[in-house]
Amino acid sequence: MDIFVQQLVNSLSVASVTILIGIGITLIFGLAGIVNFAHGEFLMVGGMATWFMVGAGMNFFVALVFAGLLVGALGFAAERCLFRFTLNRPMNGFIMSIGLSVILQHAVIRVFNEFQKSITDPVGLVWTIGGVDIIAMRAIVVAITAVIVAITYFGISRSRYGMALRASVSDRDTAELMGIPVRRYVTGVFIYGSLLAGIGGALMISLFPITPFTGSVIIIRGFAVSLIGGLGNVGGAVVGGLVLGLVDGLSAGYGYPEWTDAYSLVVMILILVLRPQGLLGGTLGPKAS
């Protein structure tokens, strides 16, 4: 039982990273209408930047903020220089994001190297609660994710900006006529999603080592999460991330670890084929071209 609870906490912390990337994708794909395959690489870049800054002697939590800002800036540049020009042809944007992901991956290899990087546990505490050992950093990861999820959820569903954003997704032309600067919103969502990826990367490297190829693995999981939950649906992404994270974590502990990656793929194919709008409903993404 103790082992099960520990597995559960571990899985939750893994699920947190998945949720962060899932929310980023669900917002960018579902609300901004951009399929960004390089999103996993954004996360990886965030992790690598954190590794570099912590290695240079910076406090982890400061590095986390900088990693988020750095990747947010990267997202801004990518949106302004690349995706802006393919908004009317999402297919081309998708192919372009693949190119971007290849570039980022190998740029990181060029700057550092292809070996895995890790940092020492930035908190280094173990809490014992009711006879169960919980690594403090993992609990902190879960808490940070919970705060971000709450901010995002209320931002999208309650705030003025969230409302304007949802209006521009459901009817772009009318939203523009009502004076909503749709393009600026698209850029904003893209930056916010990228920022989350940067923070996710920083949290991820605090949990386990990452390599320059981590991004291409995690992106599949991110897409699975956002598609399970329904595109543009923050709550759905949380549920999807929890389900997938728990299945992943528990299967690594109990089941067949060599098939771990296959689960998210199968789940994703089934959902795309059977319920392209996602299990919990969403915006269906940009109009399929």
């Binding site: 599949i220 793929l265 795309l272 084929v273 392209p276």
Partner: peptide, 28 residues
């Protein structure tokens, strides 16, 4: 047939998934 029901980008994502799945099956 099952994947063509979903158009455009969804189809591309599915093809990518099948490819990754194929490699996992081969490896195992």
């Amino acid at each position: 047939p099952p994947t063509l029901r979903v158009g455009g980008q969804h189809y591309i994502i599915i093809t990518f998934c099948f490819c990754a799945l194929f490699v996992i099956v081969l490896t195992n």
